[in-house]
């Protein structure tokens, strides 16, 4: 690698820096630097009225760096539980998105070219209205006066089961999570499926594969890179999401996103908030790494 760089003529090297420079600066300034600040913040003491305590205060209590917040996190089962719960919610939302998006993406990819653009437009149309407004809309849809609640409760009432609250429940959170992130699953899947060579399906059929075998042995394995991409695009935002649980989850339903937000805005314990953020970032990076590995393995020969 370094050998290759050394052999490049100076003009090519300059071009390379010009092309790579802006994104590099962007990442350094907006990802690496803030992450470093967060790492340092997580090791400091909380300030008296929020914020951080000065690193070099008067001699005595609360100064220098400490691993106290990490000890606190790993010392209490509660936080691990919220982490696990958040991961499970993210996993569930990702799987539901996948199951819902796959047939849709397949349908769009196999439609005549003319109608595909319109269908894709319809998939991304919800982005035209504000994210928070769409989430608030679910309050109305799922609210006790909403048609859906009425229908569900009258049906349950027939079996003598008491009325349930759809709103302010893990159910409402999951519904909105899936709703908001569905396009992020549809688009990469469609992009992948649309590129499949239709002659492969003809060949599979010619070689004796029935409809199900054609899907399972040809379409599905070839779509794995799309699945990994979509899963990453859904899983990560859902994991950090705090607005949806805040609005639709009610008081009891806390995910990591809410916990972190509370540390900064509620409890005003910045070092602990920073610790949670760093741990979350680490966990997400791990997930991306795994997804990239899996996706890379699938993409190598496709």
């Amino acid at each position: 690698m370094s050998n290759q760089t050394a052999k490049l003529p100076p003009s090519a090297r300059l071009t390379k820096w010009l092309v790579c420079g802006p994104p590099l600066v962007f990442l350094l300034l907006l990802f690496v630097a803030p992450s470093a600040i967060m790492v340092v913040a997580s090791l400091r003491f909380p300030g008296e009225f929020g914020g951080l305590a000065p690193v070099a205060a008067a001699p005595g209590v609360l100064q220098g760096l400490t691993l106290e917040t990490y000890r606190f996190f790993f010392g209490d089962f509660l936080y691990a539980e919220i982490f696990v719960k958040s991961f499970l919610v993210a996993l569930a939302a990702t799987l539901i998105c996948l199951v819902m998006a796959y047939p849709l993406a397949l349908l769009i990819a196999r439609s005549p070219k003319k109608s595909r653009d319109l269908m894709i437009l319809l998939v991304i149309l919800p982005f035209a209205s504000n994210f928070l407004i769409r989430v608030y809309a679910w309050m109305i849809l799922l609210g006790p006066q909403g048609a859906l609640s009425q229908l569900v409760n009258s049906a349950l009432g027939a079996f003598g089961i008491g009325p349930v609250h759809l709103l302010f429940s893990p159910f409402a959170v999951l519904v909105a999570m899936v709703y908001v992130h569905l396009p992020f699953m549809v688009l990469p899947l469609y992009t992948n499926l649309e590129k499949h060579d239709p002659s492969l399906l003809d060949a599979a059929q010619d070689l004796g594969a029935n409809r199900w075998q054609r899907f399972w042995h040809v379409t599905f394995p070839l779509s794995l890179p799309g699945i990994y991409a979509g899963a990453t695009l859904v899983f990560i935002p859902v994991l950090g999401m705090f607005a949806i649980p805040d609005i639709l989850g009610g008081t009891g339903d806390m995910l990591i996103g809410n916990l972190i937000k509370d540390q900064f805005l509620g409890t005003r314990d910045w070092p602990f908030g920073a610790t949670l953020s760093i741990l979350l970032t680490g966990a997400v990076l791990l997930c991306v790494l795994v997804a990239a590995r899996l996706g890379g393995a699938g993409m190598r020969h496709a």
Binding site: L200, L207, G298
Partner: peptide
């Protein structure tokens, strides 16, 4: 898929994966 007939396609249509 039920015909005892096989095709060698022009682009071969080998399964890349």
């Amino acid at each position: 898929e039920k015909r005892p007939v096989r095709t060698v396609f022009q682009n071969y249509a080998l399964f890349p994966h």
